[in-house]
Amino acid sequence: MNQLRAVLAALLVIGLLITAGCGTGQENSQSEQQNNQITANGLADTKSKSSASGQQLKKVKLIIYFPNENGEKLLAADRTVNLAGTDKYSAAVNELLQGPKKGEGTNVIPKNTQLLNTGIDNAGIVTVNFNNAFVKNFTGGSTGELMLIGSIVDTLTNFQEVKAVRFYVEGKPLDALSGHMDLTAPVTRIKNIL
């Protein structure tokens, strides 16, 4: 029995050594896969369970985006959120506001940004209404702006019914953030940063 254990342990260590030993260049494959895996948000899993109070506990899988370290493109990240007491658009944006976990990219959300509310109209235009920190604490740059607006728009347009996103701050329409993107019209999916 002891011998068997020793054999198993040795094999395990050897296995680890061989896989860890010479290998390089495998880090990229994961992010590439994620980028190809653009599925519609909310469709992956819509299991519903009835809670004691009769309310529906809905768990939904989302794909959200964070910029890579050099601000060249967005990286996809998976989240499972509970929609009890919120809507899926707010849930998705709030996941973005919490920032990336380790290895998911870099944080681009201006400090103290809060989502006040979201809505959707018949044409599939989602409105997102942030507090003033969204503009006041934004640090600028074409890249900063593209990555911030892009991560929100591309996350929300993962929901099949969403066509574009209109930005608001403290209830007022936001026409430009810091002198680059045209936000006067709803922003459609930005494909060239995915």
């Binding site: 050099n70 601000g71 944080n107 740059g141 074409s142 900063g144 990555m147």
Partner: peptide, 14 residues
């Protein structure tokens, strides 16, 4: 313009 990003290591010309 001059560019800016939250991550201070971001660099380059575009």
């Amino acid at each position: 313009h001059a560019n800016s990003f939250t991550n201070p290591t971001a660099n380059g010309t575009e």
